Computed example of a mutant assay.
Amino acid sequence: MAMGLVCGQAATAGAGGLDRNPVLLIGGIYADQARLETLRVWLGERGYTAFSMVLLGNPSGTASISDSAQAVADKVADIRQRTGARRVDLVGHSMGGLAQRDYVKFLGGSDSVGTYLDYGTPEQGDDLSTVCSAVSPGCRDMVPGSEFLTRLNADPAVPPGLTAYHLFSESAGAEKNPLPGATNVSLQSFCPGRTVSHGQEPIDGAMQELIDSALRGAPLATSCP
């Protein structure tokens, strides 16, 4: 397994869990592992077999996104071997969404992925990445117009036939740019006036419910708790 990878333990599947793909949660740059764990446990309580990982680098996400994509590939292979599942659902936050998209586009991941979902992901990059681009390959990759993003966003942005979602908060910034080929939905289209910062997204109850409904293949829905 790739060095620098941090993995959560599998959550215990509840009723109906055997009918679902295992889920891999992927954190973003400088990921808050406690918040990622909160989402993993929440999904586990709802019958999912859920795993988590953060991106490569110290702090997490500072390595190149392509290197992190290979770490995603390694983790998916490990989950499939451990669970016997044919496919794994991916849920990437922020830069985690870029790494998982690189995996499904260029590392053969579309054959091993069921539902693809990213949330809070700046699909076209984020100008804020210029602040750390001098010292971090991951930041350089996320600068708008970078070689990495140009390659990643070349048509088609996601492989044809892949069930894909891009969820975002209108309270945040660059994540509002759509992902072509995906279902693009803002949290506030369900919960008008709700303020959810980028960092709060993994622990926001409405975002969690939208993720759950997408993974179940149901119409997107939330009670806006």
Rank of each mutant, 00 (worst) to 15 (best):
M1K: 13
G8Y: 02
T12H: 07
A13V: 14
A15I: 05
A15R: 08
L18H: 11
D19C: 07
N21A: 10
P22F: 06
V23P: 05
L24I: 12
G27Y: 01
I29M: 15
A31I: 03
D32E: 12
Q33H: 11
R35H: 12
R35Q: 13
L36D: 03
E37K: 09
T38V: 15
R40K: 08
V41H: 07
W42H: 07
W42R: 10
E45A: 14
E45V: 08
R46Y: 00
G47F: 04
Y48K: 06
F51T: 01
F51K: 07
L56I: 10
N58T: 12
P59Y: 06
G61E: 09
A71V: 02
V72C: 07
V72D: 05
A73T: 07
V76K: 09
A77P: 06
R80A: 12
Q81A: 15
T83H: 03
R86I: 01
G92A: 08
S94P: 09
S94T: 08
G96D: 10
Q100T: 08
Y103E: 08
Y103Q: 09
G108D: 11
S110T: 14
S112W: 02
V113G: 10
G114S: 04
G114F: 00
T115Q: 13
Y116R: 03
D118P: 03
Y119N: 05
T121S: 15
P122A: 11
G125K: 04
D127I: 11
V135P: 08
P137Q: 14
G138D: 08
R140N: 10
D141A: 08
D141F: 02
M142V: 07
G145T: 01
S146K: 11
L152V: 06
N153K: 07
A154M: 10
D155I: 10
A157N: 11
Y165K: 01
H166N: 14
L167G: 02
S169F: 00
E170V: 06
E175D: 15
K176T: 13
P180R: 09
G181H: 01
G181N: 01
T183D: 06
L187K: 02
P192V: 03
G199D: 14
I203L: 00
I203M: 04
Q208W: 02
D212S: 07
D212M: 12
D212K: 11
S213E: 03
A218E: 15
A221K: 10
T222S: 01
S223R: 04
C224F: 00
C224N: 00
P225K: 03
